[in-house]
Amino acid sequence: MLSEVIQGMWVTIKHSLRSRETVQYPEVKEEMPVGYRGLHKLLLWEDGLERCVGCKLCSAACPVDCIYVESAENDPGNPTSKGERYASIYEINELRCIFCGYCEEACPVGAVVLGNQYEFCEDDRDKFIYEKGDLLVGSMEEVPELKARYSEQKLLKYV
């Protein structure tokens, strides 16, 4: 009986001498891999125009119906996006979202992507309905983690 216990203790001692696996979160944060499905981002083109053309395909693809899009015609003199239309309202209910990434897969222009951010909080449930202002980030040149993702996924550059 004693030999098995000593054998077990030996395993424990052996392991205690190895390097530790513990990550001291939140002081140390692990880097999220390319293609992580975190908080949504809405991207711009390099010239500052919005990628989203208001086609509502993300909203249609969403399994939990957490995306609401309203689209409007672009003003030809001062366009918001490169297409004929743009999203005048773009809201994502982040409490309802299950982060499946279907919106990103559906988006034909690569406007909505799931970024690397996984920790976000608000002090009111209403504030979790993220609007365009909360979601828009600069062009992919300005967001390094998304840039890595773009080159990997070869999202298109048309319109």
């Binding site: 891999p33 992580y36 299950i98 982060f99």
Partner: peptide
């Protein structure tokens, strides 16, 4: 799993 699918557990 996280690297291949984007999420740790709910991979889909």
């Amino acid at each position: 799993f996280e690297k291949v699918s984007g999420v740790r557990m709910m991979t889909s």
